[in-house]
Amino acid sequence: MSATNADAAPLAPPLPAKAVNDNRAHMNPLPPSVFTLPQTAQLEALYTIIRSKETSRGDFLFYSDRIIRLLVEEGLNHLPVVARTIETPTGATYNGVGFQGKICGVSILRAGEAMEAGLREVCRSVRIGKILIQRDEDTALPKLFYSKFPQDIASRYVLLLDPMLATGGSAMKAVEVIMEHGVPEERIIFINLIAAPEGLKAFCTRFPSLKVITGWIDEGLNEKAYIIPGLGDFGERSFETVAEASQGSSRLYM
């Protein structure tokens, strides 16, 4: 993102886009920090493709990338801009806006990694940190296994990437870790493909000023904490590997 006219005053952030969408079948009202994409027929068609178990891996990647790009675009709209005046090739003056603020991505391994390509298509050479969280078999609580962040993460806006939000356990742990590195809650934007109402509610109650961009809010969780209807295991479908650890479904949708 190119910062310009640093001395100009930041403009007001956009208003919540909720007026134009009706993604409330399973959650009404939405928490004020939750923003969804406009629930259009073509978006529903994209979700239908990636939900189907008949969809090939190639199609799964292509269509999930399309949604991720839209989610990232929506997320970026919550970054500040400044007024910027330029001259066009035709010699006219144009009053536009310039982007302000540096960003970085943080993906929650493993599935979040599959969202990095989409992020990079929208934000060239964006820095991306990683975080691995798994369930501690003894305490049944999410535990940080590994994290690697850009050094100056504290001065950046963070786009947190995790495609599936089920119980919200790992996402909340990830936010905790990022905040421990000096990033204030309101500078984190959580980018998410599918959310369960239970997890979304827990997450938003815990971090009320953290903006959540989600594409679709599903019915809920089943007894194994899978999102219903969901789309299966996002990481597995993206990378086409079945991790040993995930066989017992221990970590995936915490």
Partner: peptide, 26 residues
């Protein structure tokens, strides 16, 4: 992406990998 709203869409049911029916569009 925005222009795609001008194509026609029809209901479609698919089965997810955890064998749950999902009603969407195509």
């Amino acid at each position: 992406e925005c222009a795609l709203q001008h194509l026609p869409y029809a209901p479609k049911m698919v089965v997810t990998p955890i064998d749950i029916e999902s009603h969407g569009k195509k």
